[in-house]
């Protein structure tokens, strides 16, 4: 499984960042990516509308949770294969140390879309508290729970990179398309480690 594309969608559903990692893969036009971002935003909104009912059911039923809809206090296990060995202290930016990436963490995507599978691709979503969404598109379809955790770990790291190299850049306007060389570079390194 390889990462084909990473998208960043701002809280109003606009596409602020898009990057392809596989040159060979079929490309969408930039307009189609914008539509994809908008559609995802809508689907996420709809999913969060329907979520509470199923959450109630899953809470009543006990431990069994739906695959798409996580429960409120879900933590995602740390996946060690994510190139963390190569990430030396200097690469971690302003995040304290390697242990920040060595523990399981809380998923804030409590109600809404997390994972979409098609015949060709899988699509993984990571939502932040501020409504920012990180989307990864992989080349194979998978419903494997492991793959979902890997993707969530990866996107969380991408979020950390975003916090460092985009939000700490004085020349970036919030909610606008991201044009930061360092973010490009670091994200490329992150995906290459996979």
């Amino acid at each position: 499984m390889a990462i084909q594309t990473i998208l960043v969608i701002n809280r109003s559903g606009g596409l602020v960042y898009q990057r392809d990692f596989l040159p060979s893969a079929a490309k969408l036009t930039s307009n189609e990516y914008l539509i994809l971002a908008g559609t995802l935003q809508g689907v996420v909104a709809i999913a969060s509308q329907i979520a509470p009912k199923s959450l109630q059911i899953s809470a009543k039923q006990g431990a069994k949770t739906g695959s798409e809809l996580g429960d409120a206090t879900q933590t995602v296990p740390y996946v060690g294969s994510l190139g963390s060995s190569a990430a030396s202290a200097a690469d971690l930016g302003s995040f304290l140390g390697p242990d920040f990436f060595n523990e399981s963490f809380t998923s804030w995507n409590t109600k809404g879309l997390k994972h979409v599978t098609t015949d060709q691709n899988s699509l993984f979503l990571y939502q932040t508290l501020t409504g920012l969404k990180f989307v990864a598109v992989s080349t194979q379809n998978t419903t494997n729970a492991m793959a979902v955790s890997i993707a969530e770990n990866l996107l969380r790291k991408a979020y950390c990179l975003y916090a460092d190299y985009v939000m700490k850049n004085p020349f970036y306007e919030p909610e606008m398309p991201i044009r930061c060389e360092l973010f490009d570079k670091k994200l490329g390194e992150l995906v290459a480690q996979l």
């Binding site: 302003s94 460092d164 190299y165």
Partner: peptide, 16 residues
Amino acid sequence: NSPLLTRFISSTNVQC
């Protein structure tokens, strides 16, 4: 080799 202040700032025409 890696200035701390500007490590998060992508190179632009402004030299921070």
